[in-house]
Design a protein around this nucleic acid. Structure first.
Length: 104
DNA sequence: CCCTTGACCAAAC
DNA sequence: GGTTTGGCCAAGG
């Protein structure tokens, strides 16, 4: 399993209606490459993600901000709002509650 | 092998 | 509150 596959696998385990951070993902796959995680998702082979695929739009920054998205941050926000996750001024509302922690 | 580039992070200012 | 700075890791030139 290369680095990217681990990242995708971790993303898949994020349940609908919840989100996680790049840092949490990095921790979940036992690495400290937060940056490389985002990099992997940026040029992910899926291009776009819907339910059942790799939900890369459920991954946000550790400070609660939305972060980036290949198709534009606005689009990412729309996808999140479809899952009961509200965004206020580019930040996640109730971030701490929606944040999903991987099994340790 | 060195250098640059990121959908990043934390601390400092 | 925001912005800058240094650090982090993987990939590509």
């Amino acid at each position: 399993m290369n680095f990217n596959e681990k990242v995708y696998a971790a993303c898949k385990s994020i349940p609908k209606g919840q989100i996680s951070t790049y840092k949490e993902i990095a921790h979940a796959i036992n690495t400290k490459a937060y940056r490389a995680v985002g990099n992997a998702l940026n040029k992910n082979p899926f291009g776009f993600s819907y339910d059942g695929d790799v939900p890369c739009h459920r991954v946000v920054q550790s400070n609660g901000k939305v972060g980036g998205f290949a198709h534009g941050t606005k689009k990412k926000i729309e996808l999140l709002e479809k899952e009961e996750i509200k965004i206020k001024n580019n930040k996640i509302v109730e971030f701490e509650k929606k944040c999903f922690k991987f099994a340790r």
